[in-house]
């Protein structure tokens, strides 16, 4: 089976990962997964405001997932945070918190701002990929990078990296985030229906996709410093 955009069932969309794109953020990243485009910025660790949110033994990680008004093709999206954006902010924060060594910076806050520039399916996993790169770029200690993909089902077949069309007309959409070096899952949601057997196969498919994403993330992180090496012939 070929998919609507010509991909094989286990094929990712064309990907682009870039690190250190914002001058004023402590860490930043830009991620493209096909037509889905996301920017992430990290500020911190810094003084917590309001002060009452501070934790005496660890840093507080805050994440804000936001869709730009121009990110959708239908009617302009209201810039006010929607119910969906609040939910995604929460699950993204939890997916990242598992990786960040928060105990190293007690009584501080780390802010992650995620802006969806173009939404065409799997924005939450693109956001996690960008945010984890931005955290690493900021020099914040982590157990591993967090890499994420979504798997789905369309026309009875399991597919990797669900795009907007497949999300709308498919039978299931399962976003998954992992710390690939550790084999630990930090996000797992499911919209739609899969049989238990399909779910196990979907998980395997996701792991394969996550390893590909992980490699691209590592390459992007290295590139920032390797580019300067190359200037001097190293």
């Amino acid at each position: 089976m070929r998919r609507r955009d010509g991909r094989a069932p286990d094929q990712l969309r064309p990907m682009k990962f870039e690190v250190g794109i914002l001058k004023n953020a402590d860490g930043s990243a830009y991620v493209e997964m096909g037509l889905t485009k996301v920017i992430a910025a990290v500020y911190g660790p810094k003084e917590p405001h309001p002060r009452h949110i501070l934790m005496p033994d660890r840093a507080v990680l805050r994440a804000r997932y936001h869709m730009a008004p121009f990110s959708v093709t239908e009617e302009r999206k209201s810039p006010a945070p929607s119910r969906r954006e609040i939910e995604l902010s929460k699950v993204i924060k939890e997916a990242l918190s598992a990786a960040v060594l928060l105990k190293q910076f007690p009584r501080t806050v780390i802010d992650v701002y995620i802006e969806v520039l173009n939404a065409y399916g799997s924005t939450r996993v693109a956001s996690i990929n960008a945010a984890s790169l931005a955290l690493a770029d900021a020099g914040i200690p982590m157990r591993d990078l967090v890499a994420a993909v979504s798997v789905g089902k369309m026309g009875g077949e399991l597919i990797l990296d669900v795009d907007d069309y497949e999300d709308k007309y498919g039978e299931a959409d399962v976003p998954i985030a992992m710390m690939p070096g550790r084999g630990e899952i930090t996000l797992l949601q499911m919209d739609g229906l899969l049989t238990p057997e399909e779910f196990i196969r979907a998980l395997e498919l996701a792991k394969k996709g996550i390893m590909e994403v992980y490699e691209l993330q590592r390459k992007a992180l290295r590139e920032k410093y390797e580019a300067i090496w190359r200037e001097y012939g190293f």
Partner: peptide
């Protein structure tokens, strides 16, 4: 042994250090 950050690997007398490239 893991590095929690992006950095440069610096092994001296069998002791692993990571020189950070960014940080607060």
């Amino acid at each position: 042994i893991y590095s929690p950050i992006i950095g440069l690997l610096d092994i001296k007398n069998n002791v692993v250090n990571v020189i950070p490239l960014k940080g607060s």
